[in-house]
Design a protein around this nucleic acid. Structure first.
Length: 876
RNA sequence: GCCGGGAUGGCGGAAUAGGUAGACGCAACGGACUUAAAAUCCGUUGGGGGUUUCCCCCGUGCGGGUUCGAGUCCCGCUCCCGGCACCA
């Protein structure tokens, strides 16, 4: 009998699928669009890279088997910093490095048997893709969604470029965790994503099949607040100071105001006596990074400006302070401070001895005197003139209306979301298709002149970032003529944020070779929305928010019918690998790590107890050289060197084994730890499949698979039932991406096939079960399934229609009836499935062990759950 | 602090309309086969106890509750993971 040998069969079937164009999208019938977030091309892949592609491939194959018109495309998010950095490091042009990585990554994907429609491959760094970035940019410009503005921007000193707000994480660059983002004043291009803030927020409710976590993160990021704008007249000046507040009901308690140091009015309103102090404070604030502002133990700082404003409701003269706890970027950059009802204002007032006037008190209690902390709960208004006695929620509306009537303010909605800064001072990106003309100002490049091609710079040194765009140094690129007046002009030298590229690539797949448009509406409408999108949680706000924005823009432009791109979103867990953190000293219960390991593990102390080691999921393992090493699972990565590389693994063990290992080890949304034992389990499973089929191959070939399901009995009937239960289970599990339980069900059915063969010869029922089995296995382990399928058929297993289950075969003839007394199980008995309630109860009461519990007690209630259990409730 | 998600054997995890807790796999142990090992096959494996073909008690982070019956529902906690965080 032949042995299961993945190396023999895997390349063979990969070629077969390739030749048959198995995953070519055909655009006929009911569609299904499966998409994994396209990767940054990073060369040889490890198992961590492959988890979502394996999931997507299993789903795509399954949908194909179900007869859907499937789109499963792949592409490369190929512009960006890593290519530049690698280029500089190895002295290669970014393009060369990128295309080399693409071909190596493709090889890894092919080795795993992951099928795509490569005819629709998209590579964002090619002119035939990025010209549409430029085209879209211009359409947005025409729609008034692109603007150029000066002001403070985030600057990463490592990247030597500006960043979008979304790319600043805890005050640091998203690519450089150790690098604090600086502020610079620059004129840059922005996309007006805030114009869509309300829709981006509201439509989250439509995304039923998105993880709650992602929606919560987007809601928080968009940050909608309802409140009021209030104008405070400035003493001795014409203009007013505008503030935003969510608590107009506390307006009578506004005893001072705070204006952000960066606010243009700050220095303007400052009195001569306070000028020196304020200027000093403003300068100090500018030098502080965001992170410093946040980590200063929250101790409030600030300076009196010497200016006063008039509280519009009570005419009170209130001092204006400047303090960095007020952010220039939010609301109006100034606040009315109500220390009695806002903890931050309270702390500030306490520190600087400012007045605290309570204006809300709890309905059924009094506020403590003096206040120990701000009271921010509900209550009724006090010290508020005509509004006294109103519930504060009602007060919000009434005070706002009062302000509105007098032209002093109005209801306002404020968002935390900022417009998207998309200029980048880097080489490897899409040139911004704008021309600066001295006479005409900023002029978009006419559509028929697109693409503005990124010049090939052969000297790698010239692409090195220097704080301004490398393209500035290329006159042949820079100098052009104005499309409007024909006079001399300069091109914009910045490139686009690469998140622009990834905001619409899923639409390009629907019509990848269109030379007139980024995509034709009929193609996009056929395929969109993406039915299942799979990717990492790290894009919860960035890519997934930008893509939603783009889709809504395209929708408004009548370019596509949908206004949300991704019907179902799945965020997969990461793949971890056991990682060696080097030698440790062990003394009894104590373990001492090296300083290097302590830092890598982000531990406070290098000293651990054995108990702590266990708690953190780590292990001590003997090393070859006789020392003991500290091992712990960590996310697979190149830098940790713990990645199991696809090429070597597939060549030594096999693609199907890798696929089953990944899909079975844990629920797909959770992190999985890749282990040798897990691989062993997958190998044993597939081997058992192989042997079960091959051992019976000759016998099965001579049998027909036809039989009358209604006439089955005994073991045949049981096997048929198990098969149908498994079809139902596996079908449902794949739909829900529960691959781990689908494979568990397949293992159970395999065990049932083995059990059947212990007492029975192969027959028609068995043959039908084996063939269906191969179909059910095919999404997960396609090569072995295809190989074994071909022992019986000429055609691909993926051309055979996914099996339906026979509803009438699911129920067993006999069931295990559980008998409980007062909810505790006292007996189990085999009974016919269609047993009547009366019979079941009677039978239950006859049981020896049940009678013991009924003896001398009063039977007060009898519960019968058909097909499941009897519960007898007794008293006494 | 706020928001989201969790907590089930030695381990990964099942139980997806409140109804047999621990499917499936891993690891471990015992046995068969073998000169031996690997592979394979059979069996045992939540804890405790007993009169040991069987029976009892305990058991899904903790404390209450609803129910004939709770891993599942409700209330109150603890801890863990993730996100946000001076956002007015």
């Amino acid at each position: 009998m032949s042995k299961y040998n993945p190396h023999e069969i895997e390349p063979k079937w990969q070629r077969f699928w390739e030749e048959r164009g198995l995953m070519k999208a055909r655009e006929e019938g009911e569609k299904y669009y499966v998409l994994e977030m396209f990767p940054y091309p990073s060369g040889d892949l490890h198992m961590g890279h492959l988890k979502n592609y394996t999931m997507g491939d299993a789903l795509a194959r399954f949908k194909k088997q179900q007869g859907y018109s499937v789109l499963h495309p792949m592409g490369w998010d190929a512009f960006g910093l890593p290519a530049e950095n690698a280029a500089l490091k190895f002295g290669k042009h970014p393009a060369e490095w990128t295309f080399d990585n693409i071909s190596r990554a493709k090889e890894s994907l092919n080795l795993m048997g992951i099928l795509y429609d490569w005819d629709r491959e998209v590579t964002t760094c090619t002119p035939d893709y990025y010209r549409w970035n430029q085209w879209i940019f211009i359409q947005m410009y025409k729609a008034g969604l692109v603007y150029r503005a000066g002001g403070l921007v985030n600057w990463c000193p490592k990247c030597q470029t500006v960043l979008a707000n979304e790319q600043v994480v805890e005050g640091r660059c998203w690519r450089h965790e150790d690098t604090l983002v600086e502020k610079k004043s620059l004129e840059q291009w922005y996309l007006k994503i805030t114009a869509y803030a309300d829709r981006l927020l509201k439509d989250l409710d439509k995304l039923e099949h998105w993880p709650e976590k992602v929606k919560a993160m987007q809601r928080a990021w968009i940050g909608r607040s309802e409140g009021a704008t209030v104008r405070f007249a400035l003493e001795g000046r014409e203009e007013a100071l505008e503030v935003f507040t969510t608590r107009p009901d506390t307006l009578f308690g506004a005893t001072f105001m705070v204006i952000a140091p960066e606010h243009p009015l700050t220095l303007e309103i400052t009195s001569p006596e306070q000028r020196a102090a304020v200027e000093e404070y403003v300068r100090a604030a500018q030098l502080k990074s965001e992170i410093e502002r946040q980590t200063e133990d929250r101790e409030k700082t600030g300076v009196f400006t010497g200016a006063y404003a008039i509280n519009p409701v009570n005419g009170r003269k209130v001092p204006i302070w400047t303090a960095d706890y007020v952010l220039y970027g939010y609301g109006t950059g100034a606040i009315m401070a109500v220390p009695a009802h806002d903890q931050r204002d309270f702390e500030f007032a306490k520190k600087f001895g400012l007045e605290i006037v309570p204006v809300i008190k709890p309905a059924d209690a009094d506020l403590p005197e003096p206040l120990q902390a701000a009271y921010d709960g509900p209550g009724v208004m006090i010290n508020s003139g005509e509004f006294d006695g109103l519930a504060n929620e009602e007060g919000k509306k009434r005070v706002t209306a009062w302000l509105k009537e007098r032209g002093l303010g109005e209801a306002t909605v404020t968002f935390r979301l900022r417009d998207w800064l998309i200029s980048r001072q880097r080489y490897w990106g899409t040139p911004i298709p704008m021309v600066h003309c001295e006479k005409c100002g900023v002029v978009p490049v006419p559509e028929d002149q697109l693409p503005v091609v990124l010049p090939e710079i052969s000297d790698v040194e010239q692409i090195r970032p220097q704080g301004k765009s490398p393209l500035e140094a290329h006159p042949e690129f820079l100098n052009t003529t104005c499309p409007k007046c024909g006079g001399p002009a300069r091109r914009d030298a910045d490139t686009m944020d690469t998140f622009f590229d990834s905001s619409w690539y899923y639409l390009r797949y629907t019509d990848a070779h269109n030379e007139r448009l980024p995509f034709a509406r009929d193609k996009a409408d056929y395929w969109m929305p993406v039915d299942q999108y799979i990717g990492g949680i790290e894009h919860a706000v960035l890519h997934l928010l930008y893509s939603r924005f783009f889709t809504k823009f395209f929708h408004d432009q009548k370019m596509v019918g949908v206004d949300e791109p991704f019907e179902r979103l799945f965020t997969q867990g990461m793949v971890m690998g056991w990682t060696d953190y080097g030698p440790v000293e062990v003394e009894g219960e104590r373990v001492r790590l090296s300083e290097e390991a302590r830092i890598r593990l982000e531990l406070e102390s290098a000293e651990l107890t054995l108990d702590e080691v266990k708690k953190m999921g780590a292990e001590l393992r003997p090393h070859e050289d006789g020392t003991t090493h500290f091992w712990k699972p960590a996310v697979m990565s190149k830098s940790l060197g713990n990645g199991v590389m696809v090429g070597p693994f597939v060549r030594e063990q096999g693609a199907d084994i890798a696929r089953v290992t990944i899909l079975f080890a844990a629920p797909p949304e959770k992190e999985m730890i890749w282990t040798e034992e897990g691989v062993q389990g997958a190998w044993r499973f597939l081997n058992r499949v192989w042997r079960r089929v091959v051992e019976d191959e000759e016998a099965l070939k001579t049998l027909s698979a036809g039989f009358d399901p209604g006439a089955l009995e005994g073991a045949n009937k049981e096997l048929y039932r198990k098969l149908n239960q498994t079809i139902k289970k596996v079908t449902g599990d794949i739909e829900g991406l529960r691959f781990n339980t689908a494979i568990a069900a397949l293992m159970e059915l395999l065990n049932a096939l083995y059990d059947f063969r212990k007492g029975n010869e192969p027959n028609a029922v068995y043959k039908s079960a084996v063939l269906s089995y191969l179909q059910l296995l095919a999404p997960f382990a396609p090569h072995i399934a295809e190989e074994l399928w071909h022992r019986f058929y000429e055609n691909s297993v993926f051309d055979a229609r996914w099996p339906d289950y026979d509803e009438s075969a699911l129920a067993a003839d006999t069931i295990t009836l559980v008998v409980q007394v007062n909810g505790k199980v006292r007996a189990r008995l085999e009974v016919p499935a269609d047993i009547s309630k009366e019979e079941a109860l009677e039978l239950a009461k006859e049981q020896e062990n049940v009678r013991r519990y009924l003896e001398g007690k009063e039977l007060v209630k009898e519960i019968y759950v058909p097909g499941k259990l009897v519960n007898l409730v007794v008293r006494g």
